[in-house]
Structures are given as structure tokens and as C-alpha cells.
Computed example of a mutant assay.
Amino acid sequence: MSFYTSLSGLKNAQTDLNVISNNIANAETSGFKKSDTSFADIVASSALADSSHTVGIGSRVATITQNFSLGAINQTGGALDITINGDGFFTVKSPLSGETQYTRNGALTIDGSSYIVNAQGARLQAFPTDPVTGAITSTSTLQDVQIPAASPNPKDPANPGSYAGVTIGKNGQIIATYSDGSNATLGVVAVASFLAPTGLRQLGDSTWAASGNSGAATYAQPGSGTTASLLSGSLEGSNVDIAEELVSLITAQRNFQANAKAIDTATQISQAIMNLRS
């Protein structure tokens, strides 16, 4: 039994090493959230067994939990680099699969079709607004953000200005400016929140999808109520602390070595018993 008990410890230590290695590998990944491994013991006994003589039979991985604490905020100066200064997620939608995804990585660009997208080409989702007043016209629907080539709110309707630039304010308003001095509000960034964000399904590229464990997303305007505001011209880095991970790496390595030593000891005992019979 000692072989299998120590083997479970070896497997768990290997899982812990894998998780820590993944954290370290993504220490410079924007919007990445580290994971922590928790373990539980395994006990096998009948209802009539004497509890004072119960021996454990190993351990197992209880959970691998994502840690959504805020990462370091790095100033970039980019007009379309934005950070959520608190809890929540940006919402993006893949134009190919139509899948709605959530991310903390606010590195955005404009694609060839004038949509605001992330590095994977998924389109930023926003509340629709009145282009003149900037007021949100619906909180029940989200839409892609596409920048008009000519001003939708020109000072001279006969000669509308051409696109000059775009900014995103701390309240999430996406405002395009034009060569005639006019501007238009194209939408308001929708910040998604979940009852249990640790239940989100990881997709890679610092994106997640909703699951039964996370619950459905609820949306709000940045800076409204308890919803965090946005920081323009900055990106959230990984929340991995290298020093902390290296200490955890040493601990996991020692755990692996100790279980390996226990197997070696069990082997020596078995060999000694076999030699007694010869």
C-alpha cells in the first residue's frame, strides 16, 4: 500500500509543479491570472472500523483555482490600451464562431473593417449609444464597435469630416473624432461580472468563457455603482509574483523528492523481507 500512497504524492507534486511552471511561463502575459493547487487526503475505512486505527491511503488534487487578483498596471500611452481598475472583464465576440468571450487584456486595435478588436480578432462588445448625446440606448443588448469613416455627426452635412482618432474614457465611452472637429460616441464598453469568476472556463490567450460553475454574466457601465472604472493608456500585466512562485517551486520539488524517497524506502523494506525467505 505504501507504494501507491507515495505514488499519489508523486503525481500531486507533479501537478503542482506543472501549475507553478505555467504561472512562471506567463509572468509577462498581459491579463494572465495565476492558478493555485489545493490537495485533499484520501481515507478508506468502513463504518464499523476503529477510527483510532484508520490509516490514510494518499492524497489527491482537490482543486486548481484561478486567482483573479489585480495584476500590475503598466502605462503604455496607447489610445486603445485600457485596464479595468478593479473586478470585471471586457467582453469580446469572435466574428468566426460567434462565441462570447471574456478577458482582462485590454490591448485593442482597429482591424481592416474598422472594428475595434483584440489580438485574436475578437470584436469588443459595448452598449449601443446615441451618437450625439452619448446616452446608452439599451442595457439589454451588446454590439460590435465599428468606426465610421465619415463623421455621423458632421458640422457641415454636405462636407462630413474624415476619421481622425478614437479614445476610450474612464466611464467606458468610445468617442471617435473627425477632421471637421466633430465627434461621435460609438458605444460604451460593457464590463462583465460573475457570481463565481473562479468557475470560468479557460480558453487561452487570457480569455475565458462562462460555464455552469461561473454563472451567467451581468453587464454594467464602467464607473457606475460598484463597477470599476477604466484606465486609458495602460494595460494590466500578469498577477504572477515570481518570488512567490519560486518559493512554491522549491516546496513542490521537496515534496516530490520526499515521496520518491518514501518509495525507495518501501522498496528496500520489500527487498529485505524477500531476502529473509532465501
Rank of each mutant, 00 (worst) to 15 (best):
L7E: 08
Q75W: 08
R254I: 03
Q143H: 11
F90T: 03
S248N: 15
Q202R: 15
A135H: 08
A164Q: 13
A220G: 07
A27Y: 10
L249H: 03
V55R: 12
Y163G: 04
Y219S: 08
D16H: 11
T15C: 10
S21D: 10
T185C: 05
N183R: 08
G199T: 07
T141Y: 06
S248A: 15
S8K: 01
N159V: 11
A266R: 00
Y219T: 00
P148A: 03
Y4I: 14
L203N: 09
D81Y: 02
I168K: 01
S248E: 15
I84C: 03
G88A: 04
I273A: 14
V188P: 00
Q120M: 11
T109D: 14
L7G: 04
S140C: 06
S211I: 07
N239P: 11
T198K: 09
A122N: 13
I168S: 01
A25H: 08
A72V: 13
R104Y: 10
A184F: 01
E244S: 15
K93F: 03
A149S: 15
F68L: 14
G172V: 03
S229D: 07
D156S: 11
N239C: 10
P95R: 07
S182P: 02
A135Q: 13
N259E: 02
F32Q: 04
L70E: 15
I20R: 03
S51N: 12
M274K: 14
I64T: 14
Y102T: 02
G165P: 04
S162I: 12
V43M: 11
Q173V: 02
A252G: 05
V145A: 00
V240I: 14
G71N: 02
V188A: 03
N255Q: 13
G134L: 00
D36P: 02
Q257D: 12
L108P: 02
G31T: 07
I82G: 04
N259P: 06
A243E: 11
F32C: 03
S21V: 06
I84A: 00
S35W: 09
T83N: 05
Y102H: 06
N26W: 07
N105Y: 04
G9N: 03
F68K: 09
R104K: 15
S94F: 04
P154R: 06
L235P: 00
L203R: 09
G77W: 09
I20T: 08
T100V: 13
T167M: 07
T103K: 03
S278D: 11
Q221F: 02
T5A: 10
S59K: 12
T167A: 14
K33Q: 12
A47H: 12
A260Y: 00
K11N: 13
